[in-house]
Design a protein around this nucleic acid. Structure first.
Length: 864
RNA sequence: GCCGGGGUGGCGGAACUGGUAGACGCGCCGGAUUCAAAAUCCGGUUCUGGAAACAGAGUGGGGGUUCGAUUCCCCCCCCCGGCACCA
């Protein structure tokens, strides 16, 4: 190998060696299996830093597990259907299929340059008929079982383009291309009964100790199980059913509110143009929950009255835009005194607010301003007639019991989770295998006619799904009666594709079945890695889909992912200039230079090309709109993959956001160069040395170095294997390297120690920087691969210290330190501490009240 | 709006179970090497005062528990992720 570190030459040579040896094929040996998976990428064009980070984390864990002797499966594929391909098609007049496949080819090359231990033989793309035919096949099974069904759903409708918009395409209630005010529209769609699995998906979260707590909490809240009661209010001959989690506040209900889509709203609008206009106005704007929840609360009195089931009081019924038809029954009993949304509405429409729960510490209820504790469940009932004095829990029971007696309600459980609508009015997705026949209705495509292949030559133009105009796709004979019929043109939500791809990796070539016996031998995925933005939807759907496949007898597990790691975003500094109209022009960090003051603070920045000032705009997520993306391919070309991998693992722990820094990349590069020259210098001076096992090492410096090596082995193994704290693992290896460089070997035993240390460094950094590690492992005299050597073992005997430094505190402040033998008894520690020079000054004239000793760490003397 | 997470030197971060705040890296300052520069190497670097020893302050803000709090509890501010058709 070369005397100077030449990453391009090393990396291509090592990658060729891996390729020739089939080093990353997963199906080779016996032994414990480890399935290490990252969320597959959407093929957007080129690899970005977020991908790079995700796959590096996955590769580090995979390679660490390989060094633990496991059979590791690390696959890769493409989440290849979706909206961006249609947008690109509109912009470039290129069919989504071609655009997508070109992107895949390019990104595959970029991934390969990074040296990941991926088994490329298992690559799949969800836009391939060989993959999505199983979406279709399984959908038909779900239809047979009644898990899939049809009902109407509400979508964003752009009245100008005459097309359905994604929530992302609705900006401030208007279509992003046309600027037209979006309307809500009901259309028929296919749904999956995920709500039947709500309780199971919720309770099984407790069986996922390998998932981050926050993800489990978010999923639990999303499913949103609430115990409460259904209460019936009568309105003429109508019965309005409402769900409430707080039946204990029923005596405080002062009005009712129904959604604009509620049947009662429609009835109230008869002969009332004002109500009709209000309902119509509610149809404007997008359907996303964030939009609905942040819009101004508006309502209108229907003039109808409901009867309070316990008091017989007459309550006005409002139509309100904050009541959602999709949750519960689309109607609420409003208790403004104890619900923030009802409170705001009551204030606005001057409706009575009647407190029925006493506030803690006997405070007066102030009906002019909402306070968080108005929603308390800890007070007791007041102004509630026969229920006065009961606690909220007792009131809940008593009121529900009375409602049940009267047949006006019952205890019930409600979920926030809604059934999963999988129909999309889009072209670039998996066709839903249904044929619409005038005589036979919606007819499933027979299994033998699968897959329903998506034509790949269409180019969407923004005016709806081009499949609707594709006669060769549309026209088909009805499988039942044989007469002319039309294919369904809706395609499936791309979350369907991503709900089971991890199963298909285990048997990608099986053309006879969706999954097979190999699936069981790899599942569940031992470690899943992906962005926190997928914490709810993708992960919940994948858990649900796995259960559906289990119910179909295709797999034997319910939970697909044993351990989950959610990686943070990749950020970079932004720079901009503002023109006269306030419009910002953004500059890429690589085109900008910064000036510092004497303390290193950034004081100004300028564009390299024209030398004129630019304004630092803060650190933001890498995005096209801010032009702050850093291209991993460029960095790999300049520094090699190992440097880029090293920096991205070193700069932050995987779960946190990572701030990109070119200077930081330089630092990683310098470390690898130092490691390279350090090993070369050692081997040049002492070729063919066997690594020490501690014999004959006597000098204190040598004992200290060996202790640091074995402390590092212990720490790095723990950081890689348990904590996934790659940044601190790398820091420990860097610190050890610095110590080795300072050390001068005086005899043979010490030369062997240096050999042992460098071997340790090379092995420990190997999961992060595999190419240089392979090369240096050979330089150190080994013919094998560093990944075949196993993980270095910690020699506990090397960890023993002669002396440790203890901290002496007086009243919690560090005043002195002392060197003592480990395990020194409490009394000796106390007396040493009291007599230490600096400590005495602070004890002078004071009485010692207490002495706390933390063995081998610290003494705290409390004195007044 | 609702749910979840975060805030520590000039910067990225460390401190894992309540026990020495700032490991490691970047930047900056000083020095060596060099005709010079780049590269490399050595030393310093939380802030304030001090020549130093050392002292005081300090983990977004305010309060609390504790011998001791970045860590636990309460309130507040700011930033980020998700909200069911972006993936």
């Amino acid at each position: 190998m070369s005397k100077t570190y030449d990453p391009q030459q090393i990396e291509s040579a090592i990658q060729q060696r891996w390729q020739a040896q089939g080093a990353h094929r997963a199906d080779r040996g016996e032994g414990e299996r480890f399935y290490c998976l990252s969320m597959f990428p959407y093929p957007s064009g080129k690899l970005h830093m977020g991908h790079m980070r995700n796959y590096t984390i996955c590769d580090v864990i995979s390679r660490y597990q390989i060094m633990q002797g496991k059979q590791v499966l690390q696959p890769m594929g493409w989440d290849a259907f979706g909206l961006p391909a249609e947008n690109a098609a509109m912009a470039n007049k290129v069919p989504p299929a071609q655009w997508t496949r070109d992107n895949i080819a390019h990104m595959r090359d970029q991934l390969k340059a990074l040296g990941f231990a991926i088994d490329w033989d298992r690559e799949l793309a969800t836009c391939d008929p060989s993959y999505y035919r199983w979406n279709q096949w399984f959908f038909l099974r779900l239809l047979e079982r009644g898990v899939a069904y049809q009902k109407t759903g509400v979508v964003n409708w752009d009245p100008v383009d005459q097309t359905v918009l994604a929530n992302e395409q609705v900006v401030d209630g208007r279509g992003w291309r046309t600027g037209a005010v979006v309307e809500k529209r009901e259309i028929p769609m296919y749904y999956l009964r995920i709500t039947d699995y709500a309780d199971d998906l919720l309770t099984a979260l407790d069986d996922l100790p390998g998932w981050p707590e926050r993800v489990r909490t978010m999923q639990a809240n999303w499913i949103g199980k609430s115990e409460g009661a259904e209460v019936v209010f009568e309105c003429g001959e109508h019965r309005i059913e409402v769900f409430t989690t707080r039946p204990d506040t029923l005596m405080g209900a002062t009005f009712m509110a129904v959604a604009a889509e509620h049947p009662l709203a429609k009835e109230a609008s008869q002969g009332r143009p004002d109500i009709e206009a209000f309902i119509e106005s509610c149809q404007q704007g997008g359907v996303s929950e964030a939009d609905l929840a942040t819009q101004e609360k508006r309502g209108i009195d229907t003039g109808l009255k409901a009867t309070h089931p316990l008091t017989g009081e007459s309550l006005p019924i409002f139509i309100a835009n904050y009541v959602l038809m999709s949750y519960g029954s689309g109607a609420v009993m409003a208790v403004p005194a104890h619900d923030a949304r009802d409170f705001e509405f009551a204030l606005q429409y001057k409706l009575p607010i009647k407190p029925v729960i006493g506030l803690p510490d006997g405070r007066e209820y102030d009906a002019t301003e909402w306070h968080e504790d108005y929603a308390t469940k800890t007070g007791s009932l007041v102004h509630s007639g026969p229920y006065d004095g009961l606690s909220c829990a007792e009131g809940f029971e008593a009121i529900v019991a009375d409602l049940e007696k009267k047949g006006a309600g019952r205890r019930t459980t409600q979920y926030r989770l809604r059934d999963w609508g999988i129909s999309r009015q889009r072209y670039w997705g998996c066709p839903i295998p249904i044929i619409h026949c005038d005589d036979c209705g919606s007819v499933p495509v027979p299994d033998e006619d699968l897959p329903v292949v998506l034509p790949e030559d269409l180019v969407p133009d923004g005016s709806g799904n081009p499949l609707n105009r594709c006669e060769s796709f549309l026209n088909v004979d009805c499988p039942k009666c044989g007469r002319a019929a039309k294919r369904e043109t809706d395609t499936m939500d791309t979350f369907v594709d991503s709900s089971w791809y991890f199963l298909r990796y285990t048997c990608p070539d099986n053309s006879e079945a969706m999954v097979d016996h190999q699936t069981q031998s790899w599942m569940p995925v031992n470690q899943y890695i992906g962005g926190i933005e997928h914490a709810i939807l993708h992960l919940l759907y994948a858990r649900f889909w796995t259960r559906l496949m289990k119910d179909e007898g295709l797999v034997q597990i319910s939970e697909p992912f044993e351990h989950l790691l959610t990686q943070g975003m990749v950020l970079a500094e932004t720079y901009y200039r503002e023109d006269d109209s306030g419009r910002r022009q953004w500059f890429n960090p690589k085109d900008v230079e910064t000036e510092h003051d004497a303390k290193g603070r950034v004081v100004s920045a300028h564009l390299i090309s024209d030398g004129q000032a630019v304004i630092p705009g803060g650190v933001e997520k890498m995005a096209k709109s801010k032009n702050n993306g850093v291209d991993p391919a460029e960095l790999v070309a300049r520094y090699g993959a190992d440097t880029v991998r090293l920096f991205s693992m070193f700069a932050a722990p995987p779960e946190q956001s990572l701030e990109w820094s070119d200077a930081g990349v330089e630092g990683a590069w310098r470390f690898l160069k130092r490691m390279w020259t350090g090993v070369q210098a050692h081997v040049d001076a002492h070729p063919s040395v066997d690594a020490s096992r501690g014999e004959g090492i006597e000098r204190q410096e040598a004992l200290d170095l060996r202790r640091q090596l074995h402390e590092a082995i212990k720490k790095v193994g723990d950081d890689f294997g348990r904590r996934y704290a790659f940044n601190t693992a790398i820091a420990a290896v860097m610190a050890l390297s610095n110590e080795i460089a300072k050390f001068e070997a005086n005899n043979e035993a010490e030369v062997a120690l240096v050999q042992e240390c460098w071997e340790g460094v090379v092995m420990m950094i190997a999961p992060v920087t595999p190419h240089i590690s392979e090369a240096l492992w050979n330089t150190l005299g080994h013919n094998s691969s560093v990944f075949a050597t196993g993980w270095p073992r910690c020699d506990e005997s090397a960890l023993v210290r002669q002396q440790i430094t203890m901290v002496i505190q007086v009243n919690g402040k560090v005043r002195d330190r002392m060197d003592v033998a480990p395990g020194l008894d409490q009394d000796s520690i106390e007396s040493l501490a009291k007599n230490s020079e600096n400590t005495a000054r602070f004890l002078d004239g004071k009485t010692i009240r207490k002495v706390i000793v933390v063995p081998d760490k610290l003494v705290n003397i409390v004195a007044t």
